[in-house]
């Protein structure tokens, strides 16, 4: 099972390596990891996507909580939440396929951010499933390069903390 965990951390040197060290040292897997400052410059927010059964996710949550620099851990899978990932793709765009690529970009509400004679660079934002769909559709046309940010997530406002 895939789980998204949001972690508020003290924004101090070495804190990120405490978190990643915990995952590697205990054999927990990291599917993606994003981290950046929050509104409060002393606090950063880390979103980690991991896989495991309930017991493993429970351990991950508890172990994260045990780190002294961790302020708050929220497992956001069982809640109403929004998740987004951004992806940059360089796609082959030759005479025969240029129009097709643009159509796909349009359907998925992406943007062409760089153009060359033989390729387009595309920027796209969406949920994990949307990102996957775009990749699946563009792959036959020819994807040359992909860069992804990893998932960030946020609980919906209706739910209280």
């Amino acid at each position: 099972m895939k789980h998204t965990i949001s972690v508020l951390l003290q924004n101090k040197p070495g804190v990120l390596s405490r978190v990643t060290g915990l995952f590697s040292g205990r054999g927990f897997n990291i599917e993606s990891l994003c981290v950046a400052e929050t509104l409060d410059p002393n606090v950063s927010c880390l979103t980690v996507v991991s896989r495991g059964d309930e017991a493993i996710i429970e351990q991950i949550t508890k172990q994260l909580n045990k780190l002294i620099d961790v302020i708050k851990v929220t497992e956001i899978n069982d809640k109403e939440y929004v998740e987004r990932e951004m992806i940059l793709l360089r796609v082959k765009a030759e005479a025969a396929t240029r129009a097709e690529v643009l159509r796909v970009v349009d359907i998925f509400r992406g943007k062409v951010v760089d153009v060359s004679a033989k390729s387009y660079a595309i920027e796209l934002t969406g949920s994990a499933s949307k990102i996957q769909a775009v990749i699946d559709i563009l792959r036959p046309i020819g994807i040359k390069e992909i860069v992804r940010t990893g998932i960030i997530a946020m609980s919906r406002a209706t739910k209280t903390k």
């Binding site: 040197p13 390596s17 060290g21 915990l22 002294i68």
Partner: peptide, 15 residues
């Protein structure tokens, strides 16, 4: 601090 991160309860480099 890096070496002992996994084998201390917590550690600090005072800067």
């Amino acid at each position: 601090v890096g070496i002992t991160r996994p084998c201390t309860k917590h550690n600090y480099l005072v800067s």
